[in-house]
Every structure is written in structure tokens, then in C-alpha cells.
Design a protein around this nucleic acid. Structure first.
Length: 283
DNA sequence: ACCAGCTCCTGCTTGC
DNA sequence: TGCAAGCAGGAGCTGG
């Protein structure tokens, strides 16, 4: 599921359920996801109050009142669902234990938050807040694309140092943190840039267009609640709807939606991952 | 220091 | 219908 817009959608869904709430019960139903859970994971979380729920790139960060931060990454297939209790328990229909429910948090307001992840590429870690910036997973992350640092000048300075393709460079979290396969394809189409173009051939004008395209596509996607393909992004089970706004992603053989363009969307594989693009208008 | 390929895992879709 | 192959929104690790 998750690139930046999906993770941000999850964050917004979790915030009212978790921010300011105390965890009265925590259950980890297996010993690991992608990585082992920290020692005494459930015990360390139980009784803690979550003081803030934020996001960095594709990471969810829950600040705890003991100075630690719960880092959660959804991998490819992770999702959270939030269920309110009713007198006597939880709604029967939705409270069923589902396959791949790995972590269950219960708050002092009787809300249950369940992490589900079939492929188990996601993970949860506990790190002291003071060491967050030094953590190997976060230390090397590039800029937040929805912040003030994203500009043509930034992209130009970073991308022209790379020997690889624009597509591969934009997937690198050290450059722009939070982009994934969908939004890189969409941003490159909007900017009229070929995914196969060598990153170092970027010009100031093209870099400026690319920065604008990245910002626009991410903002629109967040607005739409992210994209829902095989999984859904939202904690309430509703679907995001940005997938209906895709211009190239997963649209092989369909006409290029760009005004006046007579091209057709094609799929190629770059670095082992599908790239969707229009050879007619992306140069 | 890059860079590309491999890998983790399950489930859905596609083609025979 | 069955079955195998291919593919999936991520990213750490390895070897070149």
C-alpha cells in the first residue's frame, strides 16, 4: 500500500484514536515482522501515553511519555484498522480476528487499533527520542517533499551527481523521502520527463518542473486519501481514491491523458520494478 | 561512494 | 477447474 500519501492518510486516521491516549493493553501475536519486535515490546508499551503521532517519509512515529518513540513502517502490505468499542465489547462483525493481524493496541477510551500485514515487510521499533535522528533507518533520509526544502535547485544539485536514471534516483529515499513507485511514475509524467533519462542530464528548468510535479501529485493524493489498489489505505476500511487519478501507473496500452498527446502508456522494467510512462510526451 | 540485483513474504492475476 | 509463473505500493544487504 504505502507511499507518503498513504502513510499520511494512515497517520490522520490513527491520530484521533491514539494521540493523547494511554495504551491499556498491547498484544504482539508473533515474535517478528521484518525485524524482531524489541525485547519486552508489549510490556514496554503497556501503560504508556502517546503524546504525538507524526510522520517522517514513510515512517509513522508515535512519541511516548517515557521518552521513547514507537517507529512503525508498513512495508508493502501493512495496514491499521481502528475499531470503537460498544457497551459489552467491540462490534461483533468487525472485531473478528483476521488473518495476519500481528499487533493489537487497546486504548483507555476502549478503542482498538490493529496492525495487519500479510507480507510482513513492515516493522515496529522502539527508539529513544533523543537518538531518533541518529537511527540508521532515519539518518540518511532525504528531504520531505511536502516541506519547504523541495525545489528545482535542490533536485538539480542532488540529481546531477547521480549516474543512474531519473526513475531510480527518485526512488532513492536519500534524495526525496517518501516517494515510491506510483508517485515517481506519476510525477515524471506530469513533468514531461522520461524515467529513462540519466539523472545528471537534468537542467534547471526541468528540475523546477519536476519539483512542482512531485509536490502537486503528492498533495492531490493526500487530499484524496491516498491510493487503494490491492489494499486500502484508510484506518476505517474506506478506500482512498487517488488511483482513479493515475495518468500512467498501471495503465499500459491506454492513451496518454495529456492534452494533445497522441501517445500510449507503456510499461518497462527498470531496476526490477515496473515503470509506466508515455514515450511520446516524456523526454 | 555508488549501483544493480537479490531477498524477505503472502496473495492475487494470468496463461496454459 | 488446476496449477505454475509472474507480479505487487519497500528497502536492507551483497557483491561488483
Amino acid at each position: 500500500m504505502p507511499e507518503l500519501p498513504e502513510v499520511e492518510t494512515v497517520r490522520r486516521g490513527l491520530e484521533p484514536a491514539l494521540a493523547g491516549r494511554t495504551l491499556v493493553a498491547v498484544e504482539a501475536r508473533r515474535k517478528d515482522l521484518r525485524f524482531p519486535f524489541p525485547d519486552k515490546f508489549a510490556e514496554r508499551l503497556t501503560g504508556r501515553t502517546i503524546t504525538a503521532l507524526t510522520r517522517r517519509a514513510k515512517y509513522l512515529l508515535a512519541d511516548l511519555d517515557d521518552g521513547n518513540v514507537l517507529i512503525a513502517h508498513l512495508g508493502m502490505s501493512g495496514s491499521f484498522r481502528v475499531e470503537d468499542s460498544v457497551p459489552g465489547g467491540f462490534h461483533h462483525e468487525r472485531s473478528k480476528r483476521a488473518a495476519h493481524d500481528h499487533v493489537v493496541l487497546t486504548t483507555d477510551r476502549g478503542v482498538r487499533v490493529t496492525y495487519n500485514d500479510p507480507r510482513r515487510f513492515g516493522f515496529m521499533l522502539l527508539v529513544p527520542r533523543t537518538e531518533l535522528g541518529d537511527h540508521p533507518l532515519l539518518r540518511t533520509l532525504g528531504i520531505e517533499p511536502l516541506g519547504n526544502e523541495l525545489s528545482g535547485a535542490y533536485l538539480l544539485s542532488v540529481l546531477t551527481k547521480r549516474a543512474t536514471s531519473l526513475k531510480a534516483a527518485l526512488l532513492d529515499q536519500k534524495i526525496v523521502a517518501g516517494l515510491g513507485n506510483i508517485y515517481v511514475c506519476e510525477a515524471l509524467h506530469r513533468a514531461g520527463l522520461s524515467p529513462k533519462r540519466a539523472a545528471k542530464t537534468l537542467t534547471p528548468a526541468r528540475a523546477k518542473a519536476l519539483a512542482a510535479a512531485i509536490r502537486a501529485v503528492l498533495e492531490e493524493a493526500v487530499q484524496a486519501g491516498g491510493s487503494s489498489l490491492r489494499d486500502h489505505a484508510r484506518t476505517d476500511g474506506e478506500l482512498g481514491y487517488f488511483q482513479h487519478a493515475f495518468r500512467v501507473y498501471d495503465r499500459t496500452g491506454q492513451p496518454c491523458p495529456k492534452r494533445g498527446c497522441k501517445g500510449m502508456v507503456r510499461r518497462v522494467v527498470q531496476n526490477g520494478r515496473s515503470t509506466f510512462w508515455c514515450p511520446a510526451c516524456q523526454k
